[in-house]
């Protein structure tokens, strides 16, 4: 947010969420993967909502990563994500590493299987 720690903050984080919004129940974890659903933004969404949606349009990111990209506090980013999920603009999924993502056949990828294999071999050697 602020470019310099010694400089007084100019843009408070509540600008991102909007002050009038009521608190939603905590449903997301900091590592929940988020991806845009493709639905259009409404007029009440702030520019930051738009930026979040833009960030996850091409692929999933976790809430922490989004916070990092946008220089926002993680707590605020979680709040934004929850607002967007409840508005149907983002899809949340259980955090899974990319490598674990099922391939087309619905099975783990070959690369993953090879890594598991090499790991097991390493264990046996030890």
């Amino acid at each position: 947010m602020s470019r310099d720690k010694h400089q007084r903050r100019l843009l408070p984080a509540y600008l991102a969420t909007g002050s009038g919004t009521a608190a939603l129940p905590s449903t997301l974890d900091t590592l929940t993967a988020l991806r845009a659903s493709g639905r259009p933004l409404a007029s009440y969404h702030t520019p930051v909502h738009r930026r979040v949606v833009e960030l996850v349009t091409d692929g999933s990111l976790t809430a922490v990563e989004i916070a990092g990209y946008l220089s926002l506090p993680v707590s605020v980013c979680l709040m934004l994500a929850e607002q967007l999920v409840s508005d149907g603009l983002l899809n949340a999924s259980v955090p899974t590493p990319d490598a674990l993502a099922p391939s087309r056949a619905g099975r783990p990828s070959r690369q993953l299987m090879e890594e598991v294999l090499s790991g097991l071999q390493a264990l046996r050697v030890a």
């Binding site: 509540y14 969420t17 919004t21 608190a23 707590s75 605020v76």
Partner: peptide, 21 residues
Amino acid sequence: DALQKEFTGSRSLTHKVLTAD
């Protein structure tokens, strides 16, 4: 500001901190 950055507690806490801010 520090409170917002350091903690990721429940959303209602975040909301209250933002309101106080």
